[in-house]
Design a protein around this nucleic acid. Sequence first.
DNA 1: CTGTAATCCTGCGAGC
DNA 2: TGCTCGCAGGATTACA
Length: 276
Amino acid sequence: MPELPEVETVVRDLRPLVVGRHITSVRHGSRSLRKPWDAAWNARLVGSRIAGIRRRGKWIVLDAGSPHLLVHLGMTGQSTVVPSAEAERDHVHLVFALEDQNELRFRDIRRFGSATLFPDADALEACFAEACLGPEPFQVDAIYFRNAFRKSTRNLKALLLDQTLLAGVGNIYADESCFRAKLHPQRTGTSLSNAEADRLRAAIEIVLTCAIERRGSTIRDYVGGSGLRGGYQNEFAVYGRTGEACHACGTIIECMRLAGRATHYCGSCQRPGASR
DNA sequence: CTGTAATCCTGCGAGC
DNA sequence: TGCTCGCAGGATTACA
């Protein structure tokens, strides 16, 4: 579910609702997320003041003074602030009560998400380093991007989904970025010219920026931090449009499997061989 | 180094 | 209406 634009929207929504508040209690459900919640973490969080919240790739980082909570929303994760009095829906696995009678709730139907506590910011950064999390798409160096993509014989879809090369792009935005760059997702990294690599990098940035402006894409479950749905699903050029006409040329959008994922493209706008 | 498949889960839509 | 099947925004692991 949540890729960079969705996570960015959640973080922006949550920021004014949680920063500066103290956590008055923590509770977790009986069923664990990807990793079990350590009950010892409750004591470390209760009483602490939320100093900040930010995004890194598809990860949410909640700074609780010294301890840092790292959250991933997986496929169906939702992170919202609601009044404590509001009835709790199914699949809520983690709840942080705040001093202002609101609660930060983590809900995740499929439980592919995760929540892990780190003692401090350094420990969290060490975790990112160990995972070799790639740079942010908005800050990536053009030369780095050329080198990273052009040295690999893997296809563009696999490269875009690889979080160690670039952090935050998922299935939807990989397809949308390839379309905008007019590159077939099956092209290999080594087949790209410098100009094509630059085009792809620019396309990613534009697609992600537009998606953030629309508060991300809601296919099914996704909602932002205030419970609002996204709107970028109405702007898709190729994703989920199999069998429909390309807005640019009228050719029927096709779907194939790449890197194990459904991959949507226009066979006319995105030529498999040379570009354009 | 590649690609592919299976795995973790629940829910939904398609097709019979 | 009800059943089964396949598929879904992610990430990791095993294996060829």
